[in-house]
Write a protein that binds this DNA or RNA. Sequence first.
DNA 1: CTCTTGACTGAGG
DNA 2: GCCTCAGCCAAGA
Length: 120
Amino acid sequence: MCHLRNNKHYHMKPETLNFFDKVYKVAKLIPYGRVTSYGAIAKYLGAARSSRMVGYAMNGSGGKDVPAHRVVNRKGLLTGKHHFDGTNLMQQLLENEGVKVVENQIQDFESVFWDPSKAL
DNA sequence: CTCTTGACTGAGG
DNA sequence: GCCTCAGCCAAGA
């Protein structure tokens, strides 16, 4: 099992790979039943203007035990749901944790929002 | 190599 | 609050 490259981004710069890895590490710390935003993670990592890269990192988070369904945009909208297998999988995973979603919008967003910059 | 796209966000009107 | 624009930066055509 040597030489496994779970990262399909093996052509990226070392620093960028490091950034992706940090994103996964933070995402894994999101508590059950709570959510955070791409921007919150980016800000916590000191790259507040690279929130899009956080979303991109999520795109390659498959098979890494990363709760990608707990990461939404700043409005609490499930903008990444189309990247999950089922059309409704992301919402199902969230509701299974007690997070209510209506029309791709997380209800009572501020209550379930988890900010790594304040929690860590 | 250039150009477009995108799981984003903050600022300005 | 909504709409538009600029900045961010990797990947794909």
